[in-house]
Design a protein around this nucleic acid. Structure first.
Lengths: 235, 235
DNA sequence: CGCCGCTTTGAGTCCATTCAATTCCGGTGG
DNA sequence: CCACCGGAATTGAATGGACTCAAAGCGGCG
């Protein structure tokens, strides 16, 4: 867990984020001077829910899992890959985090002090616009997740996830799961065992599972399964 | 469904919303001039998911249900009472609504053109701050709902809802359900029948149900049931 | 008083989970 | 190169919780 200086190309990467695309050069510079880049090993707890939100985190490299736990249970709320920010909402309202975050692999995380974000937000209208758009999209993501959870079956959620995340090669859909299947199950709101059985059930739809690589020769069949909520999936 | 002029006291009511508390007088005036107040009977569809977000709605009087449906199913996502706004996110990103809205009783709704909101957002930093705080709180609400849905049982969700919504009189908790129980069930993510059985199960905890009025003499027992997620319920 | 819609209750079914055991797979060391 | 180890994933059997379907209460309102 070491603090490192920001490299020029890292800064360029961060700058390319929609969140920072329209910020003025001087304000961006102010943020970057206040920020620091840190390297974390896998399985590091970055954020603990209930703690005060002191930093906006930007994942520059690696992978992060957002999760929450109550009494023994733990549920995965989302996965983050470079380059994206997380926990923007808590930072803006100066409240505690509602979710925890951990690295799933060795990662480099840029941490920007919450106060700096709030300061620039107040002074840079263009940045304010980007912040609100980012936040609104996140809001919409969670609404979609909630609807999915309440209205779709586990099998349908799986099919929808595959379509959303897989890459299409003609009629063939190929999905690579970049983490343990148990985490995918938790994200989809089911047990490992149920996920496994769901994959088995999708054999009818020409779905083949080889480890973490899933292929489907008739993606339209999957799409019919997940058709639910289709109208709202326009991002 | 008639369009009415804004009365002075209505404007004052709207102005008292956190969302408009810090806006400049002239910008607020601009919004109000572009807006109009409309009266709707019960069961009127105000917003249909999938449509373009043209207005920010402010509920001035009455009650509104947010919901969504996919293939035959319908699920309730939330209830709104005066004075609050809804669908701010869709308005800000110029996207389609992800949820539908209908009145549950005769209501008066103030409708502000989306473009006006976006214009003032860009020009009034104080308003921008209010918008982002409002949006962040809404985001956090949905995250709580999602966590609740994934980690709590139906019974626990019910107990938590009662504690959140009921008024405490000493050790006694009193909750009034201002709509059909079927809608509450849908909101909590269960069927009417399950909700009914859940209420019956709460008899062990000194919960009495008389129509839409629920009372509980030992609210601490309820709190223990819903203790789950307690750490994150700090709004 | 009687109707109609909401709510409750009952019985049966189904789906997801739990618990337990086995298989699969990647990595390590002999 | 192969045998072995441990965690992950799958499979099976049994349980249980929530849902569906159907019927009976209850309550408000004309």
């Amino acid at each position: 867990m070491e603090v490192a200086l920001l490299r020029t190309d890292d800064i360029q990467t961060v700058r390319s984020l929609p969140l920072f695309a329209e910020i003025s050069e001087s304000h961006f510079g102010a943020l970057m001077r206040a920020a620091f880049l840190q390297r974390f090993p896998a399985q590091t707890l970055l954020i603990h829910e209930g703690d005060q939100a002191d930093f906006l985190h930007v994942i520059v490299e690696g992978m992060v899992e957002m999760f929450s736990n109550s009494d023994g249970e733990e549920t995965t709320i989302g996965f983050l890959e470079p380059v994206s920010t997380f926990i923007l909402a808590a930072v803006l309202v100066e409240k505690v985090y509602l979710q925890s975050a951990r690295t799933l692999g060795p990662s480099r995380i840029l941490m920007i002090p919450a106060q700096a974000i709030r300061d620039v937000f107040a002074r840079d209208p263009a940045f304010a616009g980007s912040v609100v758009r980012e936040l609104a999209e996140r809001y919409r993501d969670v609404v979609r997740q909630l609807k999915s959870q309440k209205m779709r079956s586990g099998l349908e959620r799986l099919a929808a996830w595959m379509l959303e995340r897989g890459i299409r090669r003609g009629e063939t859909l190929e999905v690579h799961i970049p983490f343990e299947k148990a985490k995918l199950a938790s994200f989809l709101g089911m047990t490992r065992e149920s996920l496994s059985r769901s994959f088995a059930a999708l054999a009818d739809h020409d779905v083949m599972v080889r480890g973490r690589v899933i292929t489907c020769n008739r993606s339209d069949a999957l799409a019919r399964l997940a058709r639910t909520l289709g109208s709202s999936d326009s991002s």
